[in-house]
Write a protein that binds this DNA or RNA. Structure first.
Lengths: 152, 152
DNA sequence: CAGATATGTAACATACAAAGTTACATGAAA
DNA sequence: TTTCATGTAACTTTGTATGTTACATATCTG
């Protein structure tokens, strides 16, 4: 199965936007992500509907953050994407008549459900602000490294 | 992403086999699973290599269980399949130079890792014997229902 | 108002992996 | 030696994420 990287992608975009005031055009964001503007609009559509970002057309238009970054978690972003499937595996048949299949499904569903719950829970613990803070820390340490490299 | 149902499928096969002495031809198993014999051979190949099942060619040949069902867990079966990806989501870039991407990956990797650990752990807690016992219970209650339906 | 710039979105192309199918080689039993 | 079964390569089908093109729509500027 091909892996879904939309959550990773949209977080990348949001974090970029959080580093400086907008607005950002889909074109600009697409270049930073090495992809196509339409892809950007596609994955941002859900976030716009939920009010996490705004988009403006025409001159000076583009995308702007429109939420409190300390209130929005990765889970919120995931839901904004349409809550795509979390697990790469699933049952062969969802509502089987076969008792064998039912026994298999029961065992797997338990494991699947627990894993999904943990994943959603972890995503719910991390806010966009925390991500931004982490990024600024990384930027800071890089700056220090650069200073050291230059003998400062 | 299309969901991988190989684990579900192979468990179905093993459970069928555990209900009566073999051997079972790929053709028989394929019919029970409403699929193709080659698909059966494909997903059983890994289990044969690890010694969980045996296969014999020619007249009277087919597949036979060759392990202690109380010792083999769903996790063992999963590994025998080649440990396919568990999560449907992943990072856009695995070893990014971009610090933004690194920050995003760090947060997601944590969540992904935890979810995978839980899933593997749950799979490791269930043996094929437990699955078989559960199935026999389901068969038993169906038999009782049938008896009731016939007024017994 | 006209032209430039952006998003919105449908439609189509591409890439990739699971699942299904076909064909044939190999080996074992009758 | 014929039949039955697995082993496996090669190809087709299918589903989904991703990439691309085309064009409608809205907004700012001159």
């Amino acid at each position: 199965m091909k892996r879904d990287s939309r959550l990773s992608g949209v977080l990348h975009i949001l974090l970029h936007m959080a580093q400086q005031p907008g607005p950002f055009t889909s074109e600009t964001l697409a270049k930073a992500m090495d992809t196509n503007p339409v892809v950007i609009r596609r994955i941002m559509a859900g976030l716009r509907e939920l009010g996490y970002v705004r988009s403006e057309k025409g001159h000076g238009g583009g995308w702007t953050l429109a939420c409190d970054l300390s209130k929005v978690t990765l889970r919120h972003v995931y839901v904004a994407l349409g809550s795509p499937a979390l697990l790469a595996m699933g049952n062969r048949t969802e509502a089987p008549g076969c008792l064998v299949e039912q026994a298999v499904n029961a065992a797997l569903d338990q494991a699947f459900h627990d894993a999904e719950a943990v994943l959603l829970s972890r995503l719910g613990e991390v806010t966009l602000k925390m991500l931004g803070d982490d990024l600024r820390e990384r930027l800071g340490s890089r700056k220090l490294q650069g200073m050291r490299a230059h003998g400062a």
